[in-house]
Design a protein around this nucleic acid. Structure first.
Lengths: 203, 203
DNA sequence: GGGAATATTCCC
DNA sequence: GGGAATATTCCC
């Protein structure tokens, strides 16, 4: 039965998630965005069906009128009226545009009458990059594999590291010199002061 | 027809911010949150002054009535009516609560009549962690995989690198101070010498 | 107060 | 379509 597979997956995820998510293994809730989008399709009156609705087979949905959808529907479910923000969310959750002629989208786990499948839909995340993007740029230009890139990055880091340490040494020496000079000057100064005072005393 | 919906952005030009700041470049515009919070203090009618206002010296501000502030003020500037979300943003930008008796906050660069200082205020960020934290906590307990170890090495390198850069800055400042002191001493010394020579000439 | 997930915006 | 900055929420 598929349920077993599912449970095993959940356990795996829970282990990775360690301290997050508390203990609640069972009642995973779908992401708010998914629930709202699903509800917006279910709750619409017949009027709204002209704005947005499930497609014929219920395995996708169509925004028939983006303008009205943005102005009327979106603000009732979200904190904005921007069609493009809605699209951005669809992409984030892995929906695909399935028609070039109209705003029709689908996701395997987003189907009419299958609210329970929503929990299966997760945000796409770019692999947490090992590296800040500013370091990536140089290796992207040459064709590099991931592991080459990691190596390359590490190389760069170590080089920079070595240079920084040399620089540190140099700076520390400068400071030492500076301090020495300071001492010398202070000595001179105190001699002059003594000298001066002696002269004054003599007069 | 509905095409231009995509381009509509009703939120206003002032929200545009510079997203690519090189290391030395500051964003030209203050963060939207800061501008809105500033404006909300400037634009208030006398009525609103009973809800939220600058404090006496204009170096901080007070939310006199959190309830009204949340219900009336917040939604006019933000996409929510939650006082706690507002507070979260204040903390993100480094504001400090300066009274235990009332909701009074301050930030060095947030002052009445000093809109231009807002660009100096930046979001506090924990270093972008190389590693998702849910993996971090686990890797301490378990043995690490190869790729995790590589990541770990890089993280260490980056940490060391960052520390070295901070150290460099510190050393450079010490040198600057040292040089300044040197100049001052030399000045004193030359004054004494002049003085001394004058005295000698007099004799 | 702040870490982290999710949402919204902006830009390429 | 997606990366990344900022905003909002949720939770400790």
């Amino acid at each position: 039965m598929g349920d077993n597979v599912l449970d095993l997956n959940l356990l795996g995820v829970e282990e990775l998630a360690c301290h997050h998510e508390g203990q609640s293994l069972r009642p995973r809730n779908p992401a708010p965005f998914l629930l709202k989008t699903y509800n917006l399709l279910e709750e619409g009156e017949d009027d709204n069906k002209k704005i947005v609705s499930w497609n014929v087979d219920g395995r996708g949905f169509v925004v028939w009128s983006p303008a009205e959808f943005s102005d009327l529907t979106l603000p009732r479910y979200f904190k904005h009226s921007n069609f493009s923000s809605f699209i951005r969310q669809l992409n984030t959750y892995g929906f695909k545009k399935i028609s070039s002629k109209r705003w029709e989208f689908k996701h395997e786990k987003f189907q009419r009458g299958c609210k329970h499948l929503l929990v299966e839909i997760t945000r796409k995340k770019g692999e947490p990059s090992v590296f800040p993007s500013y370091l990536k740029s140089c290796s992207e230009e040459n064709g590099m594999s991931n592991s080459m890139e990691v190596n390359n990055n590490q190389q760069i880091l170590m080089e920079e590291n070595k240079n920084l340490k040399e620089e540190r040494l140099e700076l520390q020496m400068q400071i030492a010199e500076c301090k020495a000079m300071e001492m010398k000057l202070l000595e001179y100064l105190s001699q002059f002061v003594d000298n001066h005072q002696n002269k004054v005393r003599k007069l």
